[in-house]
Design a protein around this nucleic acid. Structure first.
Length: 250
DNA sequence: AAATGTTTAGGTGACC
DNA sequence: GGTCACCTAAACATTT
């Protein structure tokens, strides 16, 4: 399917659903996650049809973001304050679309109750951590006894963080992914685990491995997000929790 | 106050 | 006719 260029449908309504348009917008961003305002901007930039009646379609779009499990709300980083959260695609939602087409989904993406609860708990913990981080910054360095529970949560991430991931290849926003996708649990811990052997099958199959990597933009974005977050946290907490940096060798 | 997010409800068209 | 995906409207809550 051709990639939609700017104004590719003129004033005509494009044949994409709001879910498709939103996925497209998210997919086009370097971090594979966008705030609502940027999703709006992506759509109005490319599809003049949506420059009119903005209240109507934006309400529908927000409804879709909340209603559909395929979209995941990621709390803002503490160092990027602003209104609203970031939105991303659930990693397991990448094969929603039939034959890589955004025109129609194969089936509705629905998380099971347990999966949804886990995800919500993780994201709530992340949001709590952000709040605690901001409060801590406002109040100055805290005494060690006051580590919030969310720090425990993130400390488990520390040991699992891999180095800064390499940049993803630029992926055309209109083509969705082939079959292969990660099936790991959608918890922050699971996301930060190194790829399982299943994703890098033996004997090695470079194409599948690459596809698998491309199919997990949220994983990479989350890794980057948390690496930066924890770096900032470590920096802020160093006076209390970390040994001083080694003295330079004379 | 405005933007953002959630939820409920009703409707249409395609498909089986 | 039932089911599903999708669209629209609206009321309300939350956040900045």
């Amino acid at each position: 399917m051709p990639r939609p260029s700017r104004d590719s449908y003129g004033d005509q309504k494009p044949p994409y659903s709001y879910i498709s348009l939103t996925a497209m917008a998210i997919w086009s961003s370097p971090e594979r996650m966008l705030p609502l305002s940027e999703i709006y901007r992506f759509i109005t930039d490319r599809f003049p049809y949506y420059r009119r009646n903005t209240q109507r379609w934006q309400n529908s779009l927000r409804h879709n973001l909340s209603f559909n499990d395929c979209f995941v709300k990621v709390p803002r980083r503490p160092d990027r304050p602003g209104k609203g959260a970031y939105w991303t695609l659930h990693p397991q939602a990448f094969d929603m679309f039939e034959n890589g087409s955004l025109l129609r989904r194969r089936k509705r993406f629905k998380l099971q109750k347990g999966e949804k609860d886990n995800l919500n708990a993780e994201l709530a913990a992340l949001a709590n951590f952000n709040r605690a981080f901001l409060a801590r910054q406002a109040a100055g360095p805290p005494p060690p006894a006051s580590i919030p529970t969310a720090t425990l949560y993130t400390s488990t991430l520390c040991s699992q963080l891999s180095p800064e991931p390499a940049e993803l290849p630029d992926v055309t926003p209109i083509t969705m992914l082939p079959r292969e996708r990660p099936r790991r649990a959608f918890t922050i811990d699971a996301l930060l685990e190194p790829d399982s052997p299943r994703l890098s099958p033996s004997p090695p199959q470079p194409m599948i491995s690459l596809e698998a990597r491309m199919a997990a933009p949220y994983v990479l974005a989350a890794q980057r997000y948390h690496a930066e977050l924890l770096q900032a946290a470590a920096h802020a907490l160093r006076p209390c929790y970390l040994p001083p940096p080694p003295l330079p060798v004379a």
